[in-house]
Design a protein around this nucleic acid. Sequence first.
DNA 1: AAACCGTGGAG
DNA 2: TCTCCAAGGTT
Length: 308
Amino acid sequence: MLTTTPTLHERVLAWYDEHARDLPWRRPGTAAWGVVVSEFMLQQTRVDRVLPAYVLWLERWPTPAELAAAAPGDAVRQWGRLGYPRRALRLHAAAAVMVERHGGEVPSSYADLRALPGIGDYTAAAIASFAFGGRHVVLDTNVRRVLGRLVGGEALPPPAVTRAERERAEALAPPDPLGPRWAVATMELGALVCTSRAPRCERCPVLDACAWQRAGAPPYDGPARPRQRYPGTDREVRGRLLAVLRDAVGPVTPAALAAVWPIDDQRERAFASLVADGLVPALTSAQPDPAPSNQRMPDSSGETVRQQ
DNA sequence: AAACCGTGGAG
DNA sequence: TCTCCAAGGTT
């Protein structure tokens, strides 16, 4: 019988068929909205942390319309400690646009998706591909790393997406029959095998074709990657303020906020940025439950004030 | 276009 | 322990 050696594409897809994780947003029948929610949550957040949050979110808001009808503050609270809580506000805003301009449905085209708040190049391509079967170049950190090693022969991709990377990804897009699965498969390969720190090259289905491996797996030598500091920065202060505001059952006193960080001007600056982002307004707007009026609530100018 | 925006787990 | 960084987006 006639056998031909599998192509690189076929090998990656075969690997995916055997090793892909069973993630809820990949299950057949998942609504586009589920894909949207998963993609927002997965922005800079690992799968294992997203899983429980994803389930709870969809139980509470199974459709864009239901989220859009909720208060933004509820979205931020439901977001919990996933991180980057502006994503919760943007997801809420995106749901509102879906209701207002797309009949309550998730738009299927890349252009319409790209126009929604919180959706950039990657997320638009991902939703269009995964939820609607479109074929787009999906260039996330995993794909960038996989292609960078496999084709480019480099340990890690440069700090920002380059044109060369995009052209390389387009050149490698498989012919039609393999379709949009190429994107998920390469992402999964990057997540499980071709990892950033300690790649499991023994398990790689295309090890023999890897330019980086062939070159002896040289270390990264590109431009310095910006290191993200956290301790002592405004981000840490924001995080602490957020935790207080998010977890508060009733009104929040200025003293409770002050207790979070001892440096007054830094704390006030962080607070002001939370106001500007809409996070403080969302978290301190009148709740349906507790009685309003003379509650002491933070204000936009400083942290000392009361609710209207 | 460089810097900023949370949080937590892995190595 | 401490560093790195994780399905990015926005300004």
